[in-house]
Amino acid sequence: MSRLLEGEKVSKHFGGLKAVDAVDFYLSEGEILGLIGPNGAGKTTLFSVVAGSIPPSAGLLLLDGKQMSGWNAHRIVHAGVCRTHQIVRPFARLSILENVMVGAFYGGKRAKRAKTMRRAHEQGIELLDFVGLRERAARFPSELTLAGRKKLEVARALATRPRVLLLDEVVAGLNPVESQKMVELIRGVRDRGVSIIMIEHVMKAVMGLSDRVMVLDYGKKIAEGNAEQVAANPEVVAAYLGQEA
C-alpha cells in the first residue's frame, strides 16, 4: 500500500490557539482512516487545512509525494482531494441533481471533467443512484431529511472524482437504521477505489469502518493504531474521560 496523502508537522494557529499542532499523518491507497477526538480537538480544522479551505500555519501536505500545501481549495479538489461539511452545505436553490452536477463539471482533473450537460446528467444520476437519492434527483435539498442531505453531500463530493474523500461526521445525528445505511455507503465508496479519512463521533461506526484510527486532543496527535489499540490507550481514555467529567 503506497502512501497517497501525507502530512508532515501540519499546524494551524489562530492567534495564540494551536488548533492543530504539528500533526503527522498519512493515508494509504484504499484505506479508511478514522479521525477521532474530543470536541475542539482540531479535527475539522485539520480537514479544512487539508482541503485548502484555510491555509496551514506550518507543515507540509503531500499528495502522491507532491507538495500541495498552500493551494486553494478548488485546486486541491482538482488534484483529487474533496471534503464534505460537518454541517451540510447544499446549494439550496439548485436541484439535488444540479448540486451533484456542479461537482461533475468542476471537480477532478480537467481531462476527466464532464464536458456536456448530458454527461454531467448521467454522472449525477449514477451517483444519486449509488447513494440512494435517484428518485429525488429533480427535487430540492430542502426537501430532504438530514440523512438525505448527508448523502447528497457525499454524492456531490464523489462527483468530483476524488482519490481522497474527507468525510466530516456523516454518521452523527442519524438514527440507527440510517447510520447502518451510511456505514454501508462508506464501504461502498471505498470499494469504488476512493481512500477515506473520516471524522466521526459515533464510535461504533468509526471503529467498525476504519482500518486505522488516529486520535487528536488539543490539536496534537495522541494516539494512532487499529481500533483495539486506540481504545486501550490510556491517554485516549483520559482525553475522553476528561471531556466527559
Binding site: 482541503a51 485548502g52 479551505s53 486553494n72 481549495a73 478548488h74 479538489v77 482538482h78 474533496c82 471534503r83 461539511h85 452545505r89 447544499p90 446549494f91 439550496a92 436553490r93 439548485l94 444540479e98 456542479v102 461537482g103 468542476y106 471537480g107 477532478g108 456531490r156 463530493a157 462527483a159 468530483t160
Partner: peptide, 15 residues
C-alpha cells in the same frame, strides 16, 4: 449559481 449560493462550498467541489 453555486458561487452565489455558497462560495466556500463551491470551491470545495472545485469551482
Amino acid at each position: 449559481l453555486a458561487i452565489k449560493e455558497d462560495v466556500d462550498a463551491a470551491q470545495d467541489v472545485g469551482v
